[in-house]
Write a protein that binds this DNA or RNA. Structure first.
Lengths: 239, 239
DNA sequence: TCTTTGTTTTTTGTTGACAATTTGCCGGGT
DNA sequence: ACCCGGCAAATTGTCAACAAAAAACAAAGA
């Protein structure tokens, strides 16, 4: 269910890439709090490299939405705006809908089998509740990625992946999972995935789009509710 | 109809930014053909700067979709894949639909007036045919930007703008305009915009989404037809 | 006491040189 | 004639120092 980023064959990861990855994790772990200033020299010393690679790592992190760079004023960890998370999911929902529609239209022969296997995993997780919400979300994410890939729409895949990584980062911040915690919710999710699978297998592209959208919109709405409950959002969360 | 990129107040543009802009124009003008290798030293000498800023300009151009960087193999001007242009418009269509829906839901009081003015300009252009297809497209683009902005969805605006700049670049490559050349087509476009205006003014978010999508899907389909006619695409362009 | 101005310090922007890697080429081998 | 290994040129990756800008600070004036 993984992928190779389309370019680097066997090549070891680039230095700025490694630094960006490590810094990204540190941001997600909360070691670097939002608003914290990131000084090039500081991390250059920390990783024992020069400022050049660190500088480039910052740009990578900016593109991923982790930090914000103002030309002559340095880089800061971006603030977590809960409203942005909901907005991100709205965007992801329509993109995922398009992916499902186009994947259904292309009808790659390998799709039904792979998708059915993934949906079975989600169903099992919903029944047994034997895996963590995080792991459940990872399976769902892999399935989304699969469909986006099989849509055959390269710009769509790229955009979806970028927004997904931003959304995951923001979700990682609330220590408590924001969704997929209860059996009811997981069963609802599994049901929606089942609907999507059925529509795609039957070649019904329009239904596939609707169901795909519904999956992420349901996720968004539950997250909003959870964030309201955790006082991260004010009580007026209609969107 | 423009905006300031949210950060740079009065500050002069950064050196890498200037280089990226200039190189971007040169790519659009066709001076740098797809597949051409971009050597850092070469442009460093040309702009009389060191390799650092050029390197950074390359990353900016990569983010904009103009070039492709492979870690230890340098940068090349990206090939123009006509199928990507259609795909880009499919993505933009669903994003614009979402923007129209959310903008309608938010119902900023200034929206109807601004939108009506823009639609009037498009209608006039359709009647008189007194402005070039490129200018017509610019008005349409400004209107799209307006709606994306008034959706209040920051990630959506950002994503839409990025994809738009990529699409515009690719469209600039076919010397002949790919859309909005005939009176019939402009009148169809103006009619769709009129429908969208009516739906948004009436607060009908669902219709607004449908019409907004239809606007860009119509544009996509006409472009595909034009590209097929110009032998840029094979005759099987269903999507 | 608060504001404002000038100075010092910190931090980013840029540069030119060096190191590591890749690419193109040539000769030897099958 | 074709393929393979190794040398040389070219190109990207990295570094450390310098320049310019911003931030922090201190002192003088209202």
């Amino acid at each position: 269910m993984d992928q190779q980023t389309a370019s680097g064959p066997i090549c070891a990861l680039t230095l700025p890439q490694q630094i960006a990855d490590h810094l990204g994790h540190r941001i997600m772990n909360g070691e670097l709090v939002p608003g914290a200033r990131l000084k090039e020299e500081e991390f250059a010393g920390l990783y024992d490299v020069s400022r050049g690679p660190v500088r480039e790592a910052f740009r990578i992190l900016e593109r991923r939405g982790f930090i914000e760079i103002v030309p002559r004023h340095g880089a800061r960890v971006r603030a977590f705006d809960p409203a942005d998370l909901a907005a991100l999911f709205s965007v992801r929902a329509v993109l995922f809908g398009l992916a499902a529609r186009q994947a259904t239209e292309r009808a790659e022969p390998e799709l039904p089998g792979l998708l059915a296997a993934q949906v079975a995993r989600l169903r099992r997780s919903a029944e047994a509740m034997d895996i963590s919400p995080r792991e459940h979300a990872i399976i769902a994410g892999d399935t989304q990625h699969l469909i986006a890939r099989l849509s055959g729409n390269k710009p769509l895949l790229r955009t979806f992946e970028e927004l997904t990584s931003r959304a995951l980062w923001r979700m990682a911040w609330s220590e408590r999972p924001l969704d997929l915690t209860t059996r009811d919710r997981r069963q609802e999710s599994a049901r929606l995935w089942g609907d999507l699978l059925a529509a795609m297998t039957a070649g019904n592209a329009l239904d596939a789009e609707r169901f795909a959208r519904a999956i992420l919109e349901a996720s968004r709405d539950h997250m909003i509710a959870a964030m309201v409950a955790q006082r991260l959002l004010p009580a007026d969360a209609a969107d």
